[in-house]
């Protein structure tokens, strides 16, 4: 009995009907969190002593970077579930997670570059974290490219699941190597380690934004997976009925 929900998850229809009522709530929740967090961070949190107002980018940069990395693991784990238990739904989640993760990685990179201009005086610095983020972006692009290249949907899913798993094994190694590489070449002028002593008045809006981004991620992942479910099941009676209802 305990495993019943797990087997039910294999049914795309069950998933679609179950998650339907969640969507408005999730949308409202993430909108409220993101808007209040952004307003709080932009207008009410105190300015940073050293960086002034430019630090306010942290409220989108850090959550996006969190989700970019977490998203890769979500993608790889659902890919693994799809490979091991041959669960169609997990494949659909994996396929949906790839573009979301890529966009969030892109957001983290761009906001980081914009933040770097007033802080370091340059758009791009080969900093360890930025470089790792860039490589994560490439990993996402690889998964998406592989997914697109196969005509047959099932093969595409399996192949990109394997690639995602290989990437998961490699991510810690890549991060450690890039860290090590950076300490080797670190220019003495750039020091950026003040994040650990962040003041609570700056931290709370950040936490709001992080939770908001998580909710948003869940929302978008469900949205994408749901439309993927409809696409794959379009020949079945329940999707046809759904279309008839409007």
């Amino acid at each position: 009995m305990a495993w019943q929900w797990f087997h039910r998850l294999g049914s795309p229809r069950w998933f679609y009907e179950k998650t339907g009522p969640w969507m408005p709530w999730l949308a409202v929740l993430s909108a409220v969190l993101l808007i209040s967090g952004a307003v709080w961070g932009l207008a009410f949190a105190p300015a940073d002593m050293k960086q002034g107002n430019s630090y306010r980018i942290i409220y989108i940069h850090v959550p996006a970077a969190f989700l970019a990395l977490a998203g890769y693991y979500i993608m790889a784990i659902s890919g693994a579930i799809g490979l091991i238990w041959k669960m169609k739904l997990a494949d659909m989640v994996m396929k949906s997670a790839a573009p979301i993760g890529a966009v969030l990685t892109f957001v983290a990179l761009v906001t980081g570059a914009i933040w770097g201009k007033p802080t370091w005086g340059t758009w791009w610095v080969w900093d360890a974290r930025i470089t790792s983020m860039l490589i994560l972006f490439f990993l996402y692009l690889g998964v998406i490219a592989l997914q697109e290249a196969y005509q047959h949907q099932d093969t595409a899913n399996k192949a990109s699941a394997i690639l995602a798993l290989v990437g998961t094994v490699n991510i810690p190694i890549i991060y450690k190597s890039v860290d090590w590489w950076y300490t080797l070449h670190q220019p003495a002028t750039i020091k950026f380690t003040s994040e650990s002593t962040i003041h609570p008045s700056m931290l709370y809006p950040l936490l709001t934004m992080v939770i908001g981004f998580y909710c948003f991620y869940a929302l978008v992942l469900l949205l994408r997976t749901r439309s993927e479910v409809l696409e794959r099941e379009k020949k079945t009676r329940w999707v046809q009925d759904l279309a008839r209802q409007g």
Partner: peptide, 30 residues
Amino acid sequence: IGAALTVALRKGGLLLSLVIMPLYVPVLIF
């Protein structure tokens, strides 16, 4: 791994590079 992933594709060459190059980073660094 990349060669195996792209073997069934007619135009696998460039894709293979895209997919594999990020994984080469640690080896290159060290």
